[in-house]
């Protein structure tokens, strides 16, 4: 009986843990943005589009997030002055998206630079959801 319990617990853990981890693309920062977005469901797919899409409203040297962050969130990016930028994917850079002030500052700057305007809460949530799934 005891043995069974242990086996059951192990089975339960192996099934449920990965599931809940996959669903937990959640963080205090994302929760806050979700509130601002009125509770909409964020989409990693839309986040991916935002990351790679070319925009025309911003500064001409940097039409896309990938201009600096590189084509893949898994890879190291580079600024226009040649400085390396650590990958944006959370699996590669676990320290990312943990400092609310830093996240807000760079969303403000980079969205203005690339889109010519600030990103909406939904766009920010999509972007973070994508990066947390990567």
């Amino acid at each position: 009986m005891k043995k069974q319990n242990i086996i059951f617990a192990a089975l339960f853990a192996s099934l449920v843990m990965p599931l809940s981890m996959a669903m937990a693309a959640s963080s205090p920062i994302l929760d806050e943005i979700k509130k601002q977005a009125g509770g909409v469901e964020f989409s990693a797919e839309r986040g991916k589009t935002l990351f790679s899409q070319k925009f025309t409203g911003g500064k001409p040297d940097t039409p896309s997030c990938t201009s600096c962050h590189g084509k893949s969130p898994q890879n190291t990016g580079k600024t226009r002055a040649g400085k390396a930028i650590a990958p944006m994917a959370v699996s590669k850079s676990p320290e990312r998206y943990t400092d609310a002030k830093k996240v807000a500052k760079w969303f403000r700057r980079n969205c203005r630079t690339v889109l010519g305007r600030e990103c909406t809460p939904t766009e920010k949530g999509d972007f973070l959801t994508y990066m947390m799934s990567q």
């Binding site: 500064k59 001409p60 940097t62 226009r80 500052k105 403000r108 700057r109 630079t113």
Partner: peptide, 12 residues
Amino acid sequence: LDDHFGEDATLD
């Protein structure tokens, strides 16, 4: 800093 060599580098 709002147009720093073609980038937004604004600070608080």
